[in-house]
Design a protein around this nucleic acid. Structure first.
Lengths: 219, 219
DNA sequence: TTCAACACGTGAGAC
DNA sequence: TGTCTCACGTGTTGA
């Protein structure tokens, strides 16, 4: 604790007061220039008070963070900040991942993109295809897509694992996650990359037809 | 600035040094108990140094936050914390909104829920229906759903605005956002709530049939 | 001038 | 014991 709390009990060796000037040994320094010193004292008081307010504000925000953040083990400021940073980054990534799919504005031009997926959790050995397509919106599009997908067989079934769709401004963006499913997952593995390539080509051609339909005014 | 930076230049009124003991008026306090004081001095030095390291750590984290947060107008600590709190809450809400739909585990029991949507952006006057259904996973489910939806007409078209689907552990959760579309949005408004109610009933019955299919071992 | 923001060194308490 | 975290009052700087 420092010198005063609420302007009483000053024991600063520099600051002078009528009483303290009696002290032995500290005489020459503590010549009471009364008015100036009082003003200084008041200023110091104001200063420390406003600094305290500032601290309280900041500490209140730490408290808020402590209540917001889950799984907070250590409660000290550094840990709170560290966890905050971690969480902001984590959440940002999660949101971006989703936004990429269903919250972005559909592309202005028709687009079809096929991606062979990364190894997903338990889908080891299964081929995951992500099909992203943007086009003019129209009723029955999803139905057409699914019907079209049924025609891409090549011996194995193309299974829709997940589907997302969003529309904006008369255009729509659809994302389909497809999985090749053969004669049971216990059976033989999928033949070759060549085969995958062939399926991708066929898939692309098929979906393009669906996309083109409207462009030709057929719908 | 306080007393020393790097152990030189101590001018503390309590701490004594050979030179300072010459000062007039501050004699009696500054009796040099040399060894004890030197130890104290060393301890104080260590203390202030480690405290500086702590501060630097925390300030580094503030710096990180400043780089992470977009649209940061004021850069002072309080503002950084405030913006951080705002952002964490914002991101959390956004993630929750999405997770509610496509990242939650599908319900263990078959479930069908219909909700008449809140007024969405530009869809004023249009009825938005959100259909959430969980059931055992099976190929072609989406196709069946869409076909089933086509049968629910009642004069107006039920349009799939958005669709999401996720599967886990052999079960799947599907969310469909439907919109009643009549004879153009410029035409007469939709008749009555009664009519909406009737559609909901019919929709529920229709979707239930799709869900029940598998339960009866028909698939 | 005042005000806000900051870094600083220190004493206290926790562990 | 020492080490760590915090609140405190202060000096300083820029607006």
């Amino acid at each position: 604790m420092h010198f005063f709390r609420g302007l009483q009990g000053c024991r600063n060796s520099n600051a002078s007061s009528k009483q303290n000037s009696l002290n032995q040994g500290v005489i020459s320094i503590c010549k009471p220039k009364l008015k100036a010193d009082q003003a200084k004292l008041l200023a110091a008081h104001k200063h420390s008070e406003s600094e305290r307010r500032r601290r309280m504000g900041i500490n209140g925000q730490y408290a808020t963070l402590r209540t917001i953040l889950p799984n907070l083990i250590k409660m000290d400021k550094a840990s709170v900040l560290a966890e905050t940073i971690r969480r902001v980054r984590e959440l940002k990534k999660a949101v971006e991942e989703v936004e990429e799919v269903c919250c972005t504005v559909p592309d202005v031009d028709d687009e079809l993109r096929l991606e062979v997926g990364e190894d997903h959790e338990e889908s080891a050995g299964l081929v995951l295809i992500k099909a992203t397509l943007s086009c003019e919106d129209r009723p029955g599009l999803m139905l057409e897509l699914i019907n079209a997908l049924k025609s891409v067989k090549r011996g194995v079934e193309l299974r829709v694992v997940k589907a997302e769709m969003m529309t904006a401004g008369g255009r729509t963006k659809t994302v389909l996650w497809l999985r090749r499913r053969g004669a049971g997952s216990g059976g033989r593995g999928y033949e070759h990359d060549d085969d995958n390539e062939a399926i991708l080509v066929m898939l692309r051609r098929t979906l393009k037809v669906v996309l083109a339909k409207r462009a030709n005014g057929k719908c």
